[in-house]
Design a protein around this nucleic acid. Structure first.
Lengths: 366, 366
DNA sequence: CTGAAAGCGCTAACAA
DNA sequence: TTGTTAGCGCTTTCAG
């Protein structure tokens, strides 16, 4: 009784129940192969016929089954995106860009946040592998080895930030931390600051190290002494910023300015200073890093170093696509710039030019 | 002549190239059906054999191809999650919870933000349909009709916030705005405020309307007059909060307290007041809504009404799973509570005697 | 340029 | 309890 592919819709005259490629083929009076070619814009299809097929597709409101497509073609058209923690505003802004760009190129994205938990990381890699992602952007500012092995073993194209193994299929987004951080230090130096503290990110994160290194290098460039007691370890969270600032307040000699490894830390610092009754920037200047959206409205608005989420997202997608679509001309490295954004959390050192006012009132505004 | 499924790996003695179910079956000396049953924990499999199969699976580091599985079973195990804008901190916190819970039940999630753009919305529905999501949580605080039609037509289970059509396969998360907002108004009233302003969300969003209604109702309950001039339309963004506050500052008679439809608006308000040289809560009390993470460290820390992202996420996943797995006992409605969190942005009205310590769960630290 | 047919890797009857 | 087999909906040779 070999009825070929037995689509009931075809057997009797009733309205097709299953909206599949066969239904379209039948309605357009062509073979499923032709429908497939039409959908995939294969140029050898007779334009007349293609038009007819499209008409049917539109009329019946048909769209191909992605699962089936992926299964047979081996291409899922999904990119994975792993971030440290989605609740840090930096990441949603990055995700947004990544999504927009990926989607505009026909890819879907699978986001997952690891919360710095190796277990989660492993699990999330596994999920991505199961869903057969065609590439993964690891935007965690720090590489976990086991992760890498799992992914590399399956030969999934990867993009990292800052550092990554030099291997085919892997690209790295090189962030020029030094450029922006030097601007920040110079800005502080120009204001007259000589005693500058730095609150780092988690010590094991490579990007946090890079930022710290950029800071001390810049300090040297400005001929400013580097006081190790003023380097406090934070963890890129507000809470970490608060704790770090507490520790800083407890030191013998206070700095006149603080640079933070990211904006969330700076927000924590601002908060702690507020609690301590200290004014920013009158008593202490504060500089952040990232330039997340809310940095514009902190009190006072945060002077910070901008790292473009959009550039990061675009470079990541570009790299991944290159690996998938034209492996030969996939670049190994992409450069990302950073730049100082001066707002109002920086000023001359305490006791310098501006006379202290008795009351903490509004500081200079635009 | 029918070599069965011709897996080259099986033909010769070399290491298997394709890691599929057949490779496992062969290595474990069973049929692929048995492997499939083992993986799916079908109880009729002989424990001895199952053990052997699992051993092989572990050894070869095999995992099933999700695409194939989805294709044949008709179950993608993907839930869609649509949010308004991922860059509003409220949403990442919700996404995080949704992801955690969904993943713990074996579902993957596809997130997309509409940015209040109907075009994006349509496109994103389409993408979800193509990926064959088994359900969609529409966490946009406002329904767009066309969206609904598209999804409903395909009979995809849906979860909405606040309102949604009463139809099988659709659940609604009823947020009890009134409970928390009344607490807020009472808190203000107890402090002595009689002149209270409300900055709304986008007028077309149902949730924004509900919050406003809850506000005016609560006002009446406290016997406070409702002054329409003090109801300003915002848009749930910081910028909107700034603009709304500007308009409020321009009114003839200023209120002594402001309630905001969400925390981002409140943050904008705080910023504008800072700019205007006004102190919070001395000159004006401010209350937010949502209790996003940074509300704890705004300056001053924000008194706000908490709506649990985690409860929302859990209810959404629960509802979706119910529709998929036990349609008969899927609930139509789920209730979400809201509660006042008193911090430091509220105090007695300007000009009143001495501020007294606010009671309730104050989070005053050091 | 178009159609027939062979699977992609897996699940789910149906047999044994 | 286990194995055999027929597809899920689509892409892709390979003929015609």
């Amino acid at each position: 009784m070999a009825n070929k592919k037995t689509n009931p819709a075809i057997v009797d005259g009733k309205a097709p129940e299953r909206m599949d490629i066969r239904t379209i083929a039948r309605a357009a009076n062509v073979s499923i192969a032709t429908v497939s070619r039409t959908i995939n814009h294969v140029t050898t299809v007779n334009p007349e016929i293609a038009k007819r097929v499209w008409a049917v597709i539109d009329e019946l409101d048909y769209f191909p089954n992605t699962q089936a497509r992926a299964l047979v073609s081996g291409r899922s058209r999904i990119f994975g995106l792993i971030v440290s923690e989605i609740t840090n505003p930096f990441f949603p802004e990055l995700i947004q860009g990544f999504e927009d760009i990926a989607v505009s190129h026909g890819y879907e994205i699978l986001v997952s946040s690891t919360n710095y938990d190796p277990k989660r990381m492993t699990h999330c890699i596994r999920r991505m592998l199961e869903r057969k992602v065609e590439g993964v952007a690891v935007m965690t500012f720090g590489i976990e080895e086991p992760l890498l092995d799992q992914l590399a073993k399956r030969k999934v194209p990867l993009v990292f930030i800052d550092v990554g193994p030099k291997r085919p299929g892997i690209s790295v987004l090189k962030v020029d931390y030094h450029h922006g951080i030097r601007q920040g230090v110079q800005h502080l130096a120009a204001l007259g600051h000589r005693n500058i503290s730095f609150i780092t990110g988690p010590a094991r994160l490579h990007s946090a190290q890079s930022r710290l290194t950029a800071f001390s290098t810049s300090l040297k460039e400005c001929g400013i002494a580097h006081n190790p007691a003023w380097v406090i370890e934070g963890d890129h969270t507000m809470e970490g910023g608060i704790i770090a600032m507490e520790r800083l307040l407890a030191t013998k000699q206070m700095p006149t300015a603080v640079m933070c490894s990211n904006d969330m830390t700076a927000i924590g610092v601002l908060h702690k200073l507020y609690r301590a009754g200290l004014r920013v920037p009158d008593d202490l200047s504060v500089i952040g890093f990232d330039d997340i959206h809310i940095a514009e409205v902190t009190i006072p608005p945060l002077t910070t170093i901008q790292m473009s989420r959009f550039d990061l997202a675009r470079a990541a997608v570009t790299a991944l696509r290159a690996h998938v679509e034209q492996p030969e001309d996939a670049k190994r490295e992409y450069n990302i710039q950073t730049d100082l954004i001066v707002r109002e959390s920086t000023s001359v050192p305490c006791g310098t030019a501006k006379p202290k006012m008795a009351k903490a009132k509004s500081t200079g505004k635009s």
